[in-house]
Design a protein around this nucleic acid. Structure first.
Lengths: 235, 235
DNA sequence: CGCATTGTTGACTGATATCAAGAGCTGTGG
DNA sequence: CCACAGCTCTTGATATCAGTCAACAATGCG
């Protein structure tokens, strides 16, 4: 079971947006310096360990989040107890957009890797957006990005054989595109992303290793044979 | 192959939004009467027959649409030629939100049932939204609705056995909730929605019929045994 | 009334789920 | 430092569900 971490434990101080390295890719990228007087105060930064739960499906709260580094999974449960991971949220992504519309959070948000994120009140976004249509556009872009991602998970990661799905997942996970390396998740999570069992995920990864399609560089970093994987992905 | 219908053939005149029966559920529900002077002119209404293609994935155009009646499917293709239906669009839904962000359409939009829809230029929405944050909120709500729908298709319609998926699809298709009836799509489309083959879709529907879980009332209308289907859906 | 399309069904095959056992790893406490 | 408990990962044997290929029935259209 995921060990829960209270927000207090994860609290890492107030954020300094002015000096945020990710500022240009963040939600508030387009704001003027003057705006930071308003927004600085209520933004707080948190550091989470793997397994921490940021929020649960059905919770209603007035916070949104931006991820500075790390990764989270968005999980949904079925009536029969099964679960699917419906999306990954990574550095630069926004989390909890639904709170802006006063809706419940739609997923469990669970930390996969050590994660730094900033939390800010929905009210702040509403205030800033009110006379700044650039921010509205930025918000809509985030929604569209999530939607494109959701569609891709359906067509790429939930269609075809286990080998095809796994190959497509690995290709999506490439971080450092110059070196074609990526970090694997545990088999259970990979299964939940692809709609296959843990055992099939394990067998598929193991078989990719034996065929040298993926090579362990460090325990956490794998080198991908992108061309071969792409051939498998496209059948 | 879908027979293509040109927009000219489908043109049904300028829309009269003032008297639109769906006005309260439509995108422009909150606008004042005065606004209709501006918006009336460039909105046109079209009637499409099943099989018509509204737009193709990758097309870039400056129009959005609202569906007055009928249904469309949003289709995405994989590199290996396979396809998935990623969402249905029905009465009251908005289509082509991505055009608002100057992006290409992300799917093929194909008419499933005779459909009336209104087309309006992106520019109009931008103009109206500029000093009307209610419209922005309405737009974000539409995006969130699409996203929730996309997530549900992944967890409900792409997870579990063919019987479970089909049962969940049928339950989603209920139109008239007092009578628990729905209209079926052809087996190929149902297969593409559920990530199963046409044959498996056919077998599953046929077996539901034999078990009286669905009963044909008219050639286009089926009565559902909701409780039993729900039991199957939840395993 | 044919012809084309869609739906149904059968036989067979193959991929993945399931159940089970063991291997490898990590952290804990004696 | 070692032994052990609790994980996750891997692998094997078997069962089952769905895919594939093929034939034919039903339906609709010109």
């Amino acid at each position: 079971m995921a060990k829960s971490v209270t927000l207090r434990e994860a609290w890492a101080g107030d954020a300094d947006c002015r000096t945020c390295a990710l500022r240009t890719s963040m939600l508030f990228a387009d704001l003027e310096a003057a705006d930071f007087e308003i927004i600085h105060e209520p933004i707080e930064q948190f550091n989470f360990k793997a397994g921490a739960v940021l929020y649960h499906s059905g919770d209603r709260d007035e916070y949104m989040f931006t991820v500075r580094s790390g990764a989270l999974k968005l999980v949904q449960y079925l009536a029969d107890g099964n679960l699917r991971i419906v999306r990954l949220v990574r550095s630069g992504d926004v989390l909890g957009l639904e709170a802006l519309l006063d809706e419940c959070y739609q997923h469990d948000a669970v930390v996969l890797q050590p994660t730094e994120l900033c939390r800010f009140p929905v009210q702040l976004v509403q205030t800033l957006a009110h006379d700044n249509s650039k921010l509205y556009r930025e918000l809509m872009t985030r929604w569209q990005r999530a939607l494109t991602e959701a569609d891709a998970w359906l067509t790429e990661l939930s269609t075809g054989s286990a080998r095809q799905r796994m190959a497509r997942l690995l290709l999506r996970l490439i971080q450092d595109s110059t070196r074609n390396t990526c970090q694997l998740f545990n088999r259970e999570d990979m299964g939940a992303m692809l709609g296959i069992t843990t055992e099939t995920a394990s067998r598929t990864v193991a078989s990719f290793k034996r065929e040298d399609l993926i090579i362990e560089i460090t325990p956490t970093e794998y080198l991908l044979d992108v061309l071969s994987l792409r051939r498998i992905a496209e059948d």
